[in-house]
Amino acid sequence: MTSRVTFVSPATSSSLRQARFDDGASIDAGAAAQAHAAAGTLPSPARVVISPTARCRETAAALGLRGAETARLSGLDVGRWRGLSLAEVGAAEPEEVDRWLADPASAPHGGESVEDLRVRVALWLAEAAEGRTLAVVEPEVVRAAVTHVLQMPAAAFWRLDVPPLTATTISGRSGRWNLRLGHPLGSAAAEPED
Rank of each mutant, 00 (worst) to 15 (best):
V149I: 12
V149P: 01
L150C: 12
L150G: 07
L150P: 01
L150I: 11
Q151K: 14
Q151E: 15
Q151A: 15
M152H: 08
M152C: 09
M152Q: 13
P153G: 10
P153D: 12
P153W: 13
P153V: 04
P153R: 13
A154I: 07
A154K: 04
A154M: 06
A155I: 11
A155T: 03
A155L: 13
A155E: 09
A155M: 05
A155F: 07
A156Y: 04
A156G: 03
A156P: 08
A156H: 04
F157M: 13
F157P: 11
F157E: 07
W158S: 08
W158N: 03
W158K: 02
R159P: 00
R159K: 01
R159I: 00
L160T: 13
L160D: 06
D161F: 09
D161M: 10
V162A: 12
V162L: 15
P163L: 12
P163I: 06
P163K: 09
P164T: 00
P164W: 02
P164V: 08
L165Y: 04
L165M: 05
L165F: 01
L165N: 02
T166Y: 00
T166Q: 08
T166A: 07
T166N: 02
A167L: 03
A167V: 00
A167T: 03
A167C: 06
A167P: 00
T168S: 15
T168D: 06
T168K: 10
T168A: 11
T169D: 07
T169V: 09
T169G: 08
T169F: 10
T169C: 14
I170M: 15
I170C: 14
I170D: 10
I170W: 12
I170L: 15
S171A: 13
G172A: 10
G172M: 12
G172I: 02
R173A: 08
R173V: 00
R173K: 08
S174Q: 14
G175M: 10
G175W: 09
G175R: 12
G175T: 10
R176P: 00
R176A: 11
R176E: 10
W177K: 09
W177Q: 09
W177V: 03
W177H: 04
N178Y: 02
L179A: 10
L179C: 13
L179N: 08
R180A: 14
R180V: 11
R180W: 00
R180H: 01
R180N: 07
L181T: 06
L181W: 01
L181K: 03
L181P: 01
L181I: 01
L181Y: 01
G182M: 05
G182T: 07
G182L: 12
G182V: 03
H183P: 00
H183F: 02
H183D: 05
H183L: 06
P184F: 14
P184Y: 14
P184C: 13
P184K: 15
P184Q: 15
P184N: 15
P184H: 15
